[in-house]
Simulated assay, not measured.
Amino acid sequence: MSDINANGARLLNLSSKDEAVSVASEIITAELDLAVAKRAKASFMVSGGSSPKPLYQALSKQDLLWEAIFVGLVDERWVKEGEPGSNATFIRETLLQNEAAGAHLLPMVTDHESAQIGAPIISRFYMELGQPFDVAVMGMGTDGHTASWFPASGDLAAALDKNAADLAMAVDATGCSGAGDFPSRMTLTRPAVVSTRNVILFIPGAAKRDVFMAALDKDEMDAPVRALLDSGARLTVLMCD
């Protein structure tokens, strides 16, 4: 395991995905346990994608006071739970199992026709968790996006605004390769993410490691994942071959 420092953040290059899952699970479990002990509840923001699936499955077996843990989403496709592409469904089926079945999952979709209409409601809803959030698990696409902060999205500048007043906003990612078949999104904004007490960027695999390391020398509009460095020492990046 090698340990690199970037803007105060720890960049850990681990020997395997299993080790990355183990280290991430240990960090997250400790931080959630501490948050519950200090504040009688914890807020845990999670991302979708295939990479964190084994991490969530491992966390689901941890002996925590899950009834006091509120699980929110870093971002979501504008689809209802149960429909194809839903991050909420993915989290319910991977994390909210076993010991973690009693955790509270907070949706990021309303009954409104568009994400633009629902965004103020979601922002206020997530605000009720209290700020800052306790833990956030972030992922990254091979295009350098994290959350629903996509290069070339017309909404990227607003999502990355350091002074964004809202916790969540709608994103139109039409034409962005990383968005796939779901261009209409809801996402946490930069201030909501980087103010989180503990940010874990979980990017196993050599290809993603190389994308992230290259992003350190790019403009954040071209590689939005770079914005996570604003978290400073509260950011831990877990990479492996």
Results as ranks from 00 to 15, higher is better:
Asp3His: 09
Asp3Leu: 15
Ala6Val: 15
Ala6Cys: 07
Gly8Leu: 05
Gly8Phe: 10
Ala9Gly: 03
Arg10Val: 03
Ser15Met: 01
Thr29Asn: 10
Ala30Trp: 00
Leu32Val: 13
Asp33Tyr: 11
Val36Phe: 14
Val46Asp: 00
Ser47His: 01
Gly49Gln: 12
Ser50Gln: 12
Pro52Cys: 10
Tyr56Phe: 13
Ser60Thr: 09
Gln62Val: 13
Trp66Thr: 02
Ile69Thr: 02
Val71Leu: 05
Asp75Leu: 03
Asp75Lys: 03
Glu76Gly: 07
Val79Asn: 02
Ile91Trp: 06
Glu93His: 05
Leu105Gly: 08
Met108Val: 11
Asp111Glu: 15
Ala119Val: 08
Phe125Tyr: 15
Gly141Arg: 01
Thr142Lys: 07
His145Pro: 09
Thr146Pro: 11
Ser148Met: 05
Trp149Asp: 06
Trp149Ile: 04
Gly154Pro: 07
Lys162Ser: 14
Lys162Gln: 15
Asn163Glu: 15
Leu167Trp: 05
Thr174Arg: 10
Gly178Tyr: 04
Ala179Asp: 10
Asp181Gly: 08
Met186Gly: 07
Leu188His: 14
Ile200Cys: 14
Ile200Asn: 09
Ala207His: 14
Ala215Lys: 09
Asp217Glu: 15
Asp217Asn: 14
Asp217Tyr: 09
Lys218Asn: 10
Glu220Pro: 00
Ala223Leu: 08
Val225Phe: 01
Ala227Cys: 15
Asp230Gly: 14
Ala233Glu: 15
